[in-house]
Amino acid sequence: MRYATEAHVIEGHAGHPLPRWPSSFLLLALGVLAGMTALVFLVVELPLLLGRNPAWSARIGPYAGILHVHAACGVLALFSGPLQFVPWVRQAHPALHRALGHAYLAAIAVAGPLAVWVAVFHADPQEGLAATVQGVLWMCTSATALMAVRRRDLATHRLWMARSYALTFTFVLHRYVIEILGLRLPADLGGTAAFIWLLTIGVIFVSDSIVAFYRPAKQPLTTAG
């Protein structure tokens, strides 16, 4: 089926509109994401930006500029992503939906390669491998979502955008679990590298589960009597 305009972006299979997510679910999900993000910024990121951790500042000194550009683009992706999943925005404001999508993908086009560069040249080898795979998946899921929407395959676009944003949010989840909750895997279980692998697999599983749950049901086959 061809989709004539962006206003049809919430149509599902066979032209049937997708069921709206319950407003209570959206509010709860956005509230949780916003709360975690705010905590991570205030407790973890702000002290680093203000130079209150000399050891960290000395460690990132050789690549601080690259890391800051990566972080700025990551924040842009982090905050432009959620509205992409709100049906009301897609229906009532298709131009805003497109603009946010362009900003999101442009941010990842910059942040993704920089993340891989830092992981390859400035991270512990085991952690660097896990972070490199995560960064490559981040770029690949985003590129696949872009290719799908260009083909007007909106169901596939929705799935890969969910995967892409799930990987975007690992930035917050990683710091929330380790720095806020103080939970770390022991070294004999793989340490931080194993946690990155588990986090990458986990967020993709969760995003796929949510998309599958809200996918429109297929219409039953009927036969002429």
Rank of each mutant, 00 (worst) to 15 (best):
M1F: 07
T5A: 08
A7P: 03
H8S: 15
E11I: 08
G12W: 02
G12R: 03
A14L: 07
G15D: 02
L18A: 11
L18Y: 09
F25M: 09
L26I: 12
L26C: 04
L28K: 07
L33N: 04
L33Q: 08
F41C: 08
F41N: 03
V44I: 11
N53R: 14
N53I: 12
N53P: 04
A55V: 14
A58K: 11
Y63L: 11
G65D: 13
I66H: 05
H68P: 00
H68V: 11
H68Y: 14
S80G: 08
G81A: 09
L83D: 00
A92E: 15
H93C: 10
A95T: 09
A95S: 08
L96G: 10
G101N: 12
A106C: 15
I108D: 09
P113K: 03
A115N: 11
A115K: 00
A115F: 03
V116Y: 00
V120C: 06
Q126M: 06
G128N: 01
A131D: 05
T132G: 09
V133N: 04
Q134M: 08
G135R: 00
V136W: 05
L137Y: 00
W138D: 04
C140M: 13
T144E: 13
A145C: 02
A145D: 02
A148K: 09
A148S: 12
R158W: 09
L159E: 02
L159V: 02
M161K: 01
A162Q: 04
A166V: 03
L167K: 02
T170C: 15
L173Y: 03
L173I: 07
H174C: 06
R175F: 03
I178V: 10
I180R: 05
G182A: 05
D188T: 14
T192Q: 14
A193G: 07
W197H: 07
G202F: 12
F205E: 14
A217I: 01
P220M: 02
T223D: 00
T223W: 03
